[in-house]
Amino acid sequence: MNKILEKKSFPRWVAHLKSHTVYGPVSRGDTWHFQEVDRPEDIDLDYAQAIESPKTLIFPAKEVLFEFERTGNDSWNNRSVPIDDKPAVVFGIRPCEARALLLTDRVFGGDIRDPYYWRRRDRAALVGLACTTPPSEDCFCTSVHGSPHSSEGMDILMTDLGEFYFVEAETDRGEALIGRAADLFRPAGEAQRKTVKDIHDRARDLVKRSLPDVEAISSRLSNMFDDPIWEVEAIGCIRCGICTYLCPTCHCFDINDEITRPIPLKGQRVRTWDTCQFPDFTMHSSGHNPRPHKASRLRQRILHKFSYFKEREGVQQCTGCGRCISHCPVGIDLIEILTKVEHDG
């Protein structure tokens, strides 16, 4: 059943969730970041787009897989590093970001489930926030099978009605969260339901950028491995990796043993983010590098998301948040490139 929550009651709802670790978008000057919040008032739902996507809460930039310590000549103490047991809730997640988690689920799930990913994923309830206006100048969710009001992957979808939030529970877990502070919620009426529908319809029209036909693009891309377009479009690339680090669906990682004490040996096996955009990403120990040029690395990023993943999983691995476009320091524009693929490809 749909509910209404007064905006000023939102912090009180959060305060009722002391049993949870709470995350949400927090303002830092001109930008927002998804962080753990101690005070409900720190969550800023009037926000546009967080710099890093909430993937950083499920697939953090650093994950300690286990710790090891030498205790004798041939003896070791290896121990896993548990994370907090408490259930978690993430407020303010955008439809493109929730949908992106469903896509990374396919990478970390399937026949072999990554326990580090899933222990964080399973404990986190996602309370989404529909996009009334586009959070970014560069977002394009409607072109990649998404929408500014999609509740895919969410436990609750909230829509901003001005003085109130329209709150739709999508799962039992979502219902339970609402139940924690049931007194703060009222049933939604017909008028509010209509307003929400109008807001949602209008939001789709407000999305600023678009791709002509993503399915045609994916189809074209499968024949474009040797196309000269990559050389041309990658000219400005400085292989900084910002596009992949901020992307909600990128998931490449590195694993290293980091020594914290050399004698006796003690350390951690750590998983960190990695990026196909770094020149040494594909460096072999022989010294050979199959992707030594930035053209091949740009091609990799685009083909992975719009061709290889599509072929394997039936859907593109991009949810149109636009971060790679907004934050590229040299203006490499995915939409521009893909539009050329369709027109000239």
Partner: peptide
């Protein structure tokens, strides 16, 4: 806040 993207180095 540094995410070690090394963009500062790359640019």
């Amino acid at each position: 806040a540094c995410i070690r993207c090394y963009a500062c180095r790359s640019i």
